[in-house]
Amino acid sequence: MGLLLVLRPPQPGPKSLRRATRAQRRERHRADAEEWRTAQQRGWLLDVAVEELLPLVNSAGGGRLPILGQLNPWSDTVLDHRDLPRLEADVDRLEAVAGDDVQRELVAALRRLLMSWRAEPDLLLHCYGD
């Protein structure tokens, strides 16, 4: 089980592909796959195992963390640039309690993602849960 964090430009309202042709659906999935590859190359994508993140969040205060403590790893959330300072404060708390190399690497990866977001303030942080 994982949580996918992706920096993306604002998205238009979701369009239902229920009445779309198979070719339209294939084209949509192809465009999404290309966007994910580009995001990964730019450092805008982080795939986090919930089994690694949850114990760290719980050690840092759990539900008291304003952003990470409220994320549901089984649903989707979108954060805008106004959430960045609180999210950075959450990562600071995670860093303070990180107890092993795996947790420290997770915190470093989160920091890299947030630095990329700071450089691109027009992007939104999409959190996709399993």
Rank of each mutant, 00 (worst) to 15 (best):
M1K: 12
M1E: 07
G2L: 06
L3H: 03
L5W: 08
L5R: 10
V6C: 14
V6L: 12
L7R: 09
P9K: 15
P10N: 06
Q11E: 15
P12R: 13
L17S: 11
A20Y: 11
R22V: 12
A23P: 02
A23D: 10
Q24Y: 07
R26T: 08
R26W: 06
R26H: 09
E27A: 15
E27P: 01
E27C: 06
R28K: 14
R28D: 06
H29I: 10
H29P: 00
R30M: 04
A31K: 15
D32N: 13
A33Q: 13
A33E: 13
E34Q: 14
W36C: 08
W36V: 15
T38N: 10
Q40D: 14
Q41K: 15
G43N: 09
W44G: 01
W44M: 10
L45E: 05
A49Q: 09
V50K: 04
L53C: 03
L53P: 02
L54W: 07
P55T: 08
P55D: 04
L56E: 02
N58R: 13
N58Q: 15
S59H: 07
A60M: 06
G61W: 12
G61I: 13
G62P: 04
G63T: 15
G63A: 15
R64A: 15
R64G: 11
L65Y: 03
L65M: 08
L65N: 01
P66A: 14
P66H: 12
I67A: 01
I67N: 02
I67H: 01
I67K: 01
I67V: 15
L68T: 05
G69L: 09
Q70L: 15
L71Y: 00
P73I: 04
W74E: 00
S75M: 04
T77Y: 06
V78D: 01
V78P: 00
H81G: 01
R82V: 05
R82W: 02
L84R: 07
P85F: 02
R86N: 04
R86V: 00
L87Y: 00
A89K: 09
A89W: 06
D90A: 13
D90K: 10
D90R: 12
D90E: 10
D90G: 07
V91F: 05
V91A: 06
V91K: 02
D92P: 03
L94S: 07
L94Q: 07
E95M: 08
A96H: 14
A96K: 14
V97W: 06
V97F: 10
V97Q: 02
V97C: 08
V97D: 00
A98D: 03
D100W: 10
Q103C: 05
Q103V: 09
Q103A: 14
E105M: 08
E105F: 07
V107D: 02
A109N: 09
L110F: 09
R112S: 14
R112K: 11
L113E: 00
L114H: 01
S116M: 07
W117Y: 03
W117G: 00
R118I: 04
R118Y: 01
R118E: 05
A119L: 09
E120Q: 10
P121G: 05
P121A: 05
L125F: 03
H126Y: 13
C127E: 00
C127S: 11
G129S: 02
